[in-house]
Amino acid sequence: MKYLKHKIYGIIFNLFKIFPLKKNKITFIVDSRESFKGNLDYIKKEFEKRGNFDFNFFYKDKLSIKGFKNLATSKYVFLNDNFFPIAFMNFKGETVVTQLWHAPGAFKKFGGSVADGDTREMLLKISDNVDYLITSSKNIEDYYSEAFQISRNKIKPLGLPRADYYFESHDVDDLKSKFCNRYDIDFNKKIILYAPTFREEEKYNNVFNYLNLDEFNRALGDEYVLALRLHPKIKDFYSGDISTKGKYIDCSDYKSEQELLLISDVLITDYSSIMVEFAILNKPIVFFAYDLDSYLSNERGFYFDFESGVPGPVVSNSNQLIDVIVNEEFDESKMSDFSKTQFDAIDGKASKRVVDFLLKYEG
């Protein structure tokens, strides 16, 4: 039976509604890997400034009596990605369920924008039990309304909480020094971060079939080092064999993606939403879209025209990629304009706005 597991979760959860709600209790829904925690961490830190709150984590891939009880008795519940059992959970009327969503802005289509009818119906049921969906800009509300199948009046463009990281005090030189020591890199070299996304068309996932490392390093190696950060699903397809040894740094296992963005001088990507966050820093981005025609035909598509809408030059082969970086063919005004469409405010106060809103209207 479709969604049976999620319905069982809902039935179990509903049994715990007999316990009274606690107004200072907050529960964050995560998985056991605690992935996508960035927004949640910043919301937690902001609540900690406001008083004595009881914080709990509900691990969605673990059955726990304590977890269900905490979830059922929480005043505030936060999600950062999809959790289908929400569709079958009858929260108390005083409970406030807020979806923060881990991906910044609107780039690749997702959720109800690409799903079949059954999935859209499920998303609608989930959204019925969600009080607020936080986005980064009013300009993208229509996209999120479609993706989550949620009413516009539940969408609040208050910002991306984890983007507050870039406005904190960081010793960037120290962060870079630690990175360079770990990977045995010359500190004086600039870092080009290459972060390709996963393709359903498997043959395009081996990035070194399209990026000529010898030519890249011959042209750029004196000034730059190439740091590769792979999407987890790509690892089965790319060839980091003896022919590429020493020609790039594989930092896929580096814990903090945000630190990497902060210390990198240039980002090379393709269709990854990482570029939306990197654009905040107003540093150069190159889109290495060697399979653009295939991606447009076979993948989920974008919310805007890719070639004209992305905040940087689009290239299709190694030579074009190298030329763009060597000649610094970047348009700062385009990057700035893009950020303004994705973020209403870029000020390091997103977490504050979210918590201010919830305490004012739901506290």
Rank of each mutant, 00 (worst) to 15 (best):
N24L: 07
G105Y: 00
F58V: 11
P157I: 07
L296N: 12
I322S: 00
N212W: 03
D31V: 01
L261V: 04
Y210G: 05
R120Q: 07
W101Y: 11
A103S: 09
V276T: 07
K203W: 03
N298L: 07
F47Y: 14
L40C: 09
G309V: 03
K283T: 03
T73R: 06
L15D: 05
Y59R: 11
N317C: 11
D31E: 11
F19D: 01
L71N: 04
K360A: 10
Y204K: 02
F304L: 09
E299K: 02
V314L: 04
L100H: 07
L63V: 14
A103V: 07
Y9W: 14
Q149T: 09
A72V: 03
G51T: 05
T269Q: 05
K109Y: 06
D222V: 04
D128V: 08
N282E: 15
R152W: 05
Y144L: 14
F36H: 11
D41Y: 06
S177M: 12
I280W: 01
C180Y: 08
I126T: 06
L220R: 09
G111F: 01
S32N: 15
L358V: 12
A279N: 13
D164Y: 01
N298F: 11
L220E: 10
S32F: 08
Y303I: 10
L358Q: 08
K233W: 09
T95G: 07
D171R: 05
I242P: 00
T95I: 11
F330Y: 14
Y361V: 03
S272Q: 07
K45V: 05
L79H: 01
Y143T: 09
N319D: 15
S318F: 06
F288D: 01
G93D: 15
L175Y: 14
I242A: 14
A350V: 07
Y183S: 13
S32D: 15
G67M: 01
F84I: 13
N52V: 06
A163M: 01
F19L: 09
T269S: 06
R50V: 03
N181G: 10
S136K: 01
D131Q: 08
G51M: 02
G309Y: 06
F304T: 08
L226H: 01
Y9A: 10
V96P: 03
L321K: 10
T119Q: 10
K23C: 07
K62Y: 03
D61Q: 04
I65W: 12
F57V: 13
I185V: 15
K245R: 15
Q99T: 10
Y238C: 12
S151C: 10
